[in-house]
Computed example of a mutant assay.
Amino acid sequence: MANLQVRDIDDRLYEALKRRAELEHRSVSQEVVLLIENYLAHDMKESEQKTLRFLELSNSWMDDRNSEKIIKEIRSSRTKNTRSKKEDELFD
């Protein structure tokens, strides 16, 4: 099993970690390992959820028509712009 040594930890942070470990009846070392495990598990779960939400978006718009037909329908539904007349100009 690997060892991990942390240097120059702030005294207040260490004391808070020590109090937390005491409340949970664990050693400081056990508490640190548990905190790291929980953080990494949460981080992976959150990343997995983001991936699943993204994948839900793919294929969310299904259509039996091919792209050419869709484009043709869009173009045919457009109306001719009549604003090109001088009196309809925004700035005369």
Rank of each mutant, 00 (worst) to 15 (best):
Y14D: 13
S76F: 03
E73C: 00
H25E: 14
L13D: 13
S77V: 00
Y14V: 12
N38K: 14
I36D: 06
M44Q: 10
K69G: 00
V28F: 07
R19D: 10
E15N: 10
D92H: 09
E68F: 03
V6Y: 04
A41G: 04
N66D: 11
E48R: 14
N59W: 00
D8M: 14
L23K: 14
I9R: 09
Q5M: 10
H42Q: 10
T79Y: 08
E15Y: 10
D10P: 11
R20G: 14
L23R: 13
W61N: 04
E15Q: 12
S29W: 05
L13S: 14
Q49G: 01
R75S: 01
L57F: 04
K45L: 08
K50M: 02
N66S: 01
L17M: 13
N38P: 04
L23P: 03
S47D: 01
E24A: 13
Q5E: 08
A16I: 10
E56I: 08
N59E: 07
K18N: 11
L52N: 07
L34N: 13
R19S: 12
K18Y: 10
I70H: 06
T51N: 11
K72A: 09
D92M: 05
D92Q: 11
A21D: 06
T82P: 01
R75Y: 03
Q49D: 09
V6D: 00
W61D: 06
E31V: 02
D8I: 01
K50L: 05
D43R: 09
E73Q: 08
S84G: 02
E15V: 04
E22T: 09
E37A: 14
E37D: 14
K72F: 05
S58D: 06
K50F: 04
K18R: 15
S76G: 04
S77H: 07
M44R: 15
L35A: 14
Q30F: 05
A16N: 10
I71M: 08
D63T: 06
E48T: 06
R19W: 03
E48C: 09
S47E: 08
S76M: 06
S67E: 06
V6S: 01
S77F: 06
K45A: 12
S27D: 02
F54H: 12
M44K: 11
M62A: 02
M62V: 05
M62I: 01
L55P: 04
K45H: 09
E68V: 01
I36A: 15
E87P: 08
E87Y: 08
I36H: 05
D63Y: 03
D92Y: 07
M44I: 02
L34W: 07
H25M: 13
S77E: 02
V32S: 12
S47F: 03
R20N: 13
T79N: 08
S47T: 00
L23T: 09
I74D: 00
N81R: 15
N59C: 01
D88I: 03
I9N: 04
L40I: 04
E31L: 09
R7M: 06
D8P: 07
R75Q: 06
K72Y: 04
M62C: 00
K69R: 13
R65Q: 04
E46I: 02
L57P: 00
R65E: 01
S67A: 10
E89P: 00
R78E: 07
D88K: 15
S60F: 03
E73N: 08
L35C: 13
L23S: 12
D43A: 13
I71K: 07
D92V: 06
R19G: 09
H25R: 14
T51D: 12
V28K: 07
M44V: 03
E48K: 15
V28I: 11
M44N: 05
Q5A: 09
R7E: 11
